[in-house]
Structure formats: C-alpha cells, structure tokens
Nucleic acid binder design. Structure first.
Length: 579
DNA sequence: TCAGTTCGCGCG
DNA sequence: AAAGCGCGCGAACTGA
C-alpha cells in the first residue's frame, strides 16, 4: 500500500484529474476527539483503486487543495465509510459537503449479522471476519492533535485502504443474502441522520428550569404523603453507623413491599399490574403519584441540562441507526424517543426564532403493515376504504354498530388491536384493560373478546396459526431485512418483529427520500421517533415543506406495500406539543 | 467497592 | 401450553 502525504509529499493539484474521475473511493477521517463540536478534524484519508492512498493533513493543507477536497466530496460517486455518520458530521461541520452514494461497512455488517456472523462490527472485527486480515488497533486511540508519527499516518491510510476490499466482500455477501434493497435504504438515510444530529433540537431553557422546580416540589409533596403511611420507622444502617430515619426509601421495591404489607396490602411485586388490584387504596394512589413525578423529575428533567450543548445551545441526541434488532433506530443522550407526551414536556422543544416545526407521523402504520403481511381481507378493506379500524374493531367485539361506538370503546379497541395482533393472550388482555383503562373484565370476557376478534380477522388468525404450527427460525421484513430467532424466541416475537421492522424500513425510505429534497435548502430534520418525523424550517416555506414531507412519507411504502395505503398526519407547529 | 443485572416506566 | 414487542435510563440490588 503506497501513500502520499499532503501537503508534505505534494499537492492535490497534481492528482486533481485522477481524483475527480474516481467512481469509487473509500474515505476515513481522524479527529482529535469524538465530539464534533469540541474536537477538530485532523486527517482525511482517501483510498481509490488506481492510486496511492492520500493522507491529507487538514491542519496544514493549502487553500487550493481544500477547494479540491470540496469538489471530491461533492462527486456523485460511491463513497465507502466505516460508520459514515461520524465522518459526515465532522466533514459537514468543517464545511465539506458530501454527496454521492454511500456504502457503510458498519451498517452492512449489522445487516449481515447472523448466528454465525461477527457480533461486533468495528473495523478490526469486520476485517478479520470478511477478509481474514488482522488490523492493528494500537494506533486507534492515539492523539491526533500534535505532530503525527509515521506509524499514525500509515495506520490512518490502512483504515481507508482496507475499506475498498471490505466493501467487495460485503457487497457480495449482501447480494447472496438478498439484502441489497435494505442496504440501499439504510445507506440512503445516513445523510439524514448525520444532519439531524448535527442540527439538534432547541429547548426553551427557561421553561425547563421552571418546570423542573415545579415537579421537584411535587415529588417532595408526594413523598410526604407516602411518609404518612409509614407505621414502623425504619432504622437504616449506613457506612458511618446506625442512623434513625424518619422515612423509608420509596424508590426501593423491597422497602415499598414491606410498607404495603404493613398497610395490609399483600402482593408479590410492586409493578403496575400488581398495584392495579388495589387501585383505589390511598397508599397505592400516593405511590403511583410519587413514582410518576419522580420518574419525570429523575429521568427527564434533572438530567436534561447536561445534554444541552454549550456551543449550540441545542440538544444533539445520538441515534443508533440499527439500534433495535427489529431494524428500528434507538436514541440516547438523551433518548428523544421517550420524551413524555405531557404537554409541558413537549412544549419545551421549540424551533429557532422565525422558524417552525413540521410534525408528521404515520397513522397506524404497524397495523396497516400487519394487515398486508397477514393478508387479512377485512383489515385491508377497512384501510382501502379509509375506515377507522379501531372503531371497526370496537364494533366487532361489542357487537354494536359503528355509529354507536363511544370514544372510550374506540380507545380500548386500540389496545386490543395492537395487543391481539402481536400475540397477547386473554390474561394479558384482561390485565391491560385493567391497568390502562381501569376497566375490569373477567378472564372469560377477555377470552370472549379474543374469540370474537379472531372470528372477524381471519387473515390474522391464519397468520398466527401458521406461527403456532410452524415456529420459524428466521424471518424477513418487507424489504428483505433478516431476522434470526433464538430457541427462546416466542410466538409474540414472530408476530411482532417483521411488522415493527417493516415499519422501520418504510420510515427509513422516507428519511432518505426526504433528505434528497431538503438537502440544498435550509430545512432540517430535528427528530425521528419511530413513526414520526419532525423538521424545522423558515415559517415562509412551511406550507410547501409540509406538502413535501407528507408526499414523501405517504409514498415511501409504494414499492413494498401493494394492498394498504399509508397516511401521514401532519401539522405545522410552534412547539412539539402542538400535535 | 464496583461492574453487571434487574426492575419499573417513559415512548413508539 | 401460553405468550404483545422494541428500546434507554435511573435506582436499587447482587455477587465476588
């Protein structure tokens, strides 16, 4: 492997034509740290098939060469990265716009991962597994902020160079496994995700601190209420000796259980399901209130300030593109996918001045997909006719006309639809009804519900029966994403995984297509929550952007769903709560 | 003492 | 035979 160090061994201007005519290039970067806002982009390595690897020191590169790099990055060719999101964020943040078709070896590794495949998808592991080559990882964590050693430069070049070979091996495996479609989908939305993380989401800090204070008080209040139920004051042994405590730890399930016993409540654990049997007991009510308030305070409000970036004043959450085995994304620091629905929480998330949000989510996308996959005639017809499936289900299980279905009945049917399709049993249904709606039904009634349900939805019933008689060892989503089940995987997972995964596939198609339409404008994706996309743009272009988003989302399933239409509910909003 | 696990619960 | 699924996070708990 030959290398050319820029600028010490020459200028890119000497290789201009060569570089600008490459159909395929592998790209890697070295940075002084992991955080794009506080670290610097130091090295850019470009490997191609018919030239040495260019290792460019961006601290020292000339203006002319910077211009050439910009042109290279904008080439509409195939660009190979290992974890492209990381490099893309740094490149964009440093003024290098990247275009072209991506091939991400990390994402490919995750898609190809099987029972026999590598569990980890770092470059060394992929190289070992797909090429049988050991990669020295010694230099990976080295410091790239000062003078660079020869070996640092060599390893940097090697990391880019190996990607060319790796892509060939992985592409062939993707083809063999019929994973090319889903790979193209995953690759297409990396740009969107990188842009989303870089853009971040603004939070109104004054609202945050005011609300934090308010909930903190609430926690104290409920704590005092709980205190009043404590009969035997607890003596706590601490590291420093014995301390008389006037209270018990209400976060401790063990201590809570003791407290419940003292108040003549005898249950096995303190989960919501167990508490439900005593739903009207003042102690249980107090406990539920306390837990709710404490959860809001401890899990969301109190830790949130540390996730606000000092430099941008925004929240730049970190998404894991294939975070769930189903194919869904996951999100952390903070997890934007679990921000409470309470108005007070979501209204803290706001666009910049002069901007607005456009918030869109798919209407019942998983049920639509289940209808398609299970090929259920009644469900398909309902969706084709744009009927309300929840009302239909309510009508079927209560044996009353759709026109007489109450709001509450529809709401319950919603849970029934989701629960029963994904394998919930009668007992589960009974508990769910009790926990969620406070509706006490007997096991027999739940059983009756279930029977009526499957009498109505014959396709779903057949689909289920097939899993029962022939438990699968693997499965695929509508785009061909693969699932390999363990021996312990059960019936409900067979029902759920391909449906949840197909919904994720469709959302990712939408993301990829959306990015193509907005990349050259000042429109940015700021959050994605499973079936929901939030974008931020100037108020003046809100209406047309809304149209774009809606079209992209509703058309995303066209090549994979032939029997059910997709519907996106969409709103222009001045904060996240307005939906 | 501390890393790893479990519970409970927020979201879809 | 019976069975909703997928995450991340904080706090408590466990085990060596």
């Amino acid at each position: 492997m030959e290398t050319i160090l820029i600028p010490s061994q020459g200028s890119l201007t000497n290789y201009r034509d060569l570089l600008l005519t490459q159909d395929v290039m592998a790209i890697d970067t070295e940075t002084t740290g992991l955080d794009v806002f506080t670290s610097q982009l130091r090295l850019l390595q470009i490997a191609t098939y018919n030239s040495p690897v260019f290792v460019i020191d961006l601290f020292k590169v000339s203006i002319e060469d910077q211009q050439i790099i910009k042109k290279i990055m904008k080439l509409n060719n195939t660009k190979i990265f290992q974890n492209a999101k990381f490099d893309l964020k740094f490149l964009y943040h440093n003024g290098y716009t990247v275009e072209g078709i991506l091939f991400d070896t990390m994402i490919a590794g995750q898609l190809l991962r099987s029972n026999s495949g590598p569990y980890r998808v770092n470059l060394a592991e992929l190289s070992k597994f797909y090429l049988g080559k050991e990669l020295n990882k010694e230099e990976q964590k080295s410091d790239f902020s000062g003078e660079l050693t020869n070996s640092q430069l060599q390893y940097a070049a090697k990391d880019a160079h190996i990607l060319l070979e790796l892509r060939e091996a992985m592409q062939s495996d993707l083809r063999k496994a019929k994973l090319e479609k889903i790979a193209a989908i995953e690759f297409s939305c990396i740009y969107a995700i990188a842009d989303m993380e870089l853009t971040g989401m603004k939070i109104d800090e004054q609202l945050l601190s005011a609300y934090t204070l308010q909930i903190k008080k609430q926690v104290q209040q409920y704590h005092e209420t709980l205190d009043s139920f404590v009969i035997n004051k607890v003596v706590q042994q601490t590291f420093f000796g014995i301390e008389q405590s006037h209270s018990i730890n209400f976060n401790s399930q063990k201590q809570i259980l003791t407290l419940l016993n003292e108040n003549d409540i005898f249950i096995d654990d303190t989960s919501q399901a167990s508490l439900a049997s005593y739903a009207n007991h003042p102690l249980i009510i107090a406990l539920k209130n306390y837990r709710k308030a404490y959860k809001l305070y401890g899990s969301f409000l109190q830790p949130l300030p540390k996730d606000i970036n000092n430099l941008t004043g925004r929240i730049h959450a970190s998404y894991s593109q294939i975070g769930a085995s189903s194919g869904r994304m996951s999100c952390r620091k903070p997890n934007m996918q679990q921000v409470p629905r309470d108005k007070k929480f979501r209204e803290m998330f706001v666009p910049d001045k002069g901007n607005c949000f456009i918030i869109a989510d798919y209407s019942q996308v998983e049920l639509r997909i289940a209808a398609e996959i299970a090929n259920d005639p009644r469900m398909i017809k309902a969706y084709k006719d744009n009927k309300d499936l929840h009302k239909l289900t309510a009508s079927l299980i209560t044996n009353s006309p759709i026109s007489e279905i109450t709001k509450e009945q529809r709401q319950s049917a919603k849970a029934v639809n989701f629960g029963l399709i994904f394998g919930m049993g009668s007992r589960g249904l009974m508990n769910y009804s009790k926990d969620t709606y406070g509706i006490n039904i007997t096991l027999e009634q739940a059983d009756q519900f279930r029977n009526e349900y499957f009498k109505a939805y014959t396709g779903i019933k057949k689909w289920h029966n097939n899993f029962k008689s022939n438990p699968p060892t693997s499965a695929k989503s509508i785009t061909g994403r693969r699932y390999f089940y363990r021996d312990t995987t059960g019936f409900s997972s067979f029902c759920n995984t391909p449906v949840q995964g197909s919904a994720a596939d469709i959302l990712k198609i939408a993301l990829g297509n959306l990015y193509k339409k907005i990349k050259d404008s000042n429109v940015h994706i700021v959050a994605v929550i499973h079936d929901e996309i939030i974008i931020e743009c100037k108020e003046e272009i809100a209406k047309q952007t809304k149209k774009t988003l809606q079209n992209v989302m509703e058309n995303a399933g066209i090549s994979f769903l032939s029997n059910v239409p997709l519907v996106a509910d969409i709103e222009i909003a001045s904060n996240w709560a307005e939906k």
